[in-house]
Design a binder for these strands. Sequence first.
DNA 1: ACAGTAACCTGTTTGC
DNA 2: TGCAAACAGGTTACTG
Length: 270
Amino acid sequence: MPELPEVETTRRGIRPHIQGKTVSAVVIRQPSLRWPIPRELPQLLKHRKLDSIGRRGKYLILNFSNGCLLLHLGMSGSLRVLPASTPAEKHDHFDLVFGKQCLRLHDPRRFGAVLWTESPPDRHPLLHKLGPEPLSDKFTGGHLYRHSRTRRIAVKQFIMDGKVVVGVGNIYANEALFHAGISPGRSCASISARRYERLADAIKQILVTAIECGGTTLQDFVQADGQPGYFSQELQVYGRAGEACPCCGKPIKQKILGQRSSYYCARCQR
DNA sequence: ACAGTAACCTGTTTGC
DNA sequence: TGCAAACAGGTTACTG
């Protein structure tokens, strides 16, 4: 479910309700996610104040005085702020309770993660090798161009590689390539610096717009208040195999690249 | 260092 | 209608 816009939407949705609040309890119902939820979290977090909530790529970083809680939503995770008395439903694996409210993690496929680190989060092994934030000044067409010269993979797989740039998942990779007029299967090393400028701009614009729309809701993504995201309506090619290209009318094609569905217009994208 | 694949898990959709 | 296969927003670990 969640790519960078959905994670950022979640961060903005939960922050006003829980930042500055003190943890009164931690509930672990199902510890077996992508990695086990640390059993000692309740002792570590009880009576600790949540100082701030950051984000790195698709990780949410909850900062406490004694360490950081790292949350990843995987493929199907969502976070909501609810009255602490709300009965837990199936797949509600983890709660951070703040008095009468709680932050609840729901994740049917359990590819998400709840991790604890006492070092600066950027030094955590999972965050350490990540590429630049796509909405930062460090992410440019030049960055994509330089890092692609020695690689032999398709450009779509290249921009979905977290070591190249974080936060671009399957939906937004397809959309950005359509906007930039680049065919997803083209070798990343064969693309000019000028076209990478256009691609970097497209990625930034797509992500910013998606965040403004509250993310993309395909099946069940909800914002922290339970509202769906509206970017689904803006999708030009993702999930639209066989439909007319919004630009030229030719049917949108679908093919698999690196085990993921890719959607593109063979006329508009070269 | 890089590329390709399997793996983690459940729910929904598709096809026979 | 029923059942099995295919597929789904992510990412790591392993193999060659």
